[in-house]
């Protein structure tokens, strides 16, 4: 049993406290009637942020400079190609998922190949890569809008036992990610590399293999997220991944993962993802216009980060 005091020292608790506060502030205005629906919508949209956030978290854990900017482009390409292949046919769902996974695998491999072969910072490698992926997505999308197979669309919008299916998927992925990070050699290696790459190398760790696996993992999760998002929203759109670049980084940082790497945090991502969606819906239900909503979102993100940085002196 964890005492309250110990609980409060967990880095991830703050994102949940913030999410709960925003939820209460919203329900206070809309009344309890809308609370259930709000919770459903929040869980669904948080699921997308969690999927990309977990991938981004693994990458950020690798240490300073490690960040994957190709997430939105990968989501778009995976969603587009998968929907094109399935072409609305129910029997092709597995094949569609397969294509999405392959896109993720290819992007991850290409990203790390660039980082390694050209010895360039991951930000630039994934940025250049995202230009290429985005072009491929535009080229294959070409204004067509294919509907996802009905069964798949139903699955992504339905709920099991009151919990949205997507949240269950994201939950399962989160548990796997937690086990991977905290209970496997691979997870320990990521943390070690994030804390000190030269030390990890001297200790004889397979640094390249670990980093390669991490970039592949991030791209695959982004691809799966794109696949689910395209099925959920009834088709792949070219800008569907756009907001997830900021989102994937924001949920990781607000969730209490150290930006400097070497220390990651799975539960925090959930708190941060719920928080991010709730902030937007709170500002919506208060009747603010788009402009004020954006400004408030930005200021709240910065405020949370400033507050969160205060409790961990010496890191950043």
């Amino acid at each position: 049993m964890m005492s309250l005091a110990r609980l409060m020292r967990r880095p991830w608790i703050w994102s949940f406290v913030a999410a709960l506060a925003v939820w209460l502030a919203t329900v206070a205005v809309t009344g309890l009637g809308g609370a259930g629906g709000l919770a459903q919508a929040t869980l669904t949209f948080a699921a997308f942020s969690v999927l990309v956030g977990i991938g981004q978290m693994f990458v950020i854990t690798l240490g300073p400079g490690n960040i994957d900017l190709s997430v939105p482009a990968t989501m778009t390409l995976a969603g587009t190609l998968a929907l094109k292949l399935m072409n609305g046919a129910e029997g092709m769902v597995i094949a569609g998922l397969g294509v999405a996974l392959l896109v993720g695998l290819a992007v991850g491999l290409a990203n790390y190949a660039l980082i390694k072969a050209l010895r360039i910072p991951p930000i630039i490698a994934t940025l250049s890569m995202s230009f290429l992926i985005q072009s491929a997505a535009i080229w294959s999308n070409r204004g067509l809008r294919i509907k996802p197979p009905a069964a798949l669309a139903d699955f992504t919008t339905a709920a099991t036992l009151g919990v949205p299916n997507l949240a269950l998927v994201a939950g399962a992925v989160s548990v796997l990610a937690w086990v991977l990070l905290n209970r496997t050699v691979y997870g320990r290696r990521i943390a070690a590399i994030g804390q000190s790459l030269p030390a990890a190398r001297m200790a004889g760790m397979p640094v390249d293999g670990t980093r390669l696996a991490t970039y592949v993992l991030c791209a695959v999760l982004a691809a799966v997220c794109g696949f689910l998002l395209a099925s959920f929203s009834g088709g792949a759109a070219l800008n569907m991944g756009a907001e997830y670049l900021l989102m994937s980084i924001a949920v990781v940082i607000i969730g209490g993962t150290a930006v400097a790497g070497g220390d990651s945090n799975v539960p925090g991502i959930w708190g941060a993802a719920l928080f991010m969606f709730l902030v937007v819906s709170m500002l919506n239900s208060y009747g603010f216009g788009a402009g004020v909503r954006l400004i408030m979102t930005g200021l709240i993100i910065i405020a949370v980060i400033v507050l969160a940085s205060g409790r961990r002196p010496g890191t950043g």
Binding site: L246, V259, L294, G298
Partner: peptide, 16 residues
């Protein structure tokens, strides 16, 4: 603070 995250937040503010 990490500049990436602060400027990310500011991008919402400027956009708004």
């Amino acid at each position: 603070l990490p500049a990436i995250v602060v400027t990310l937040g500011m991008s919402f503010v400027w956009g708004g």
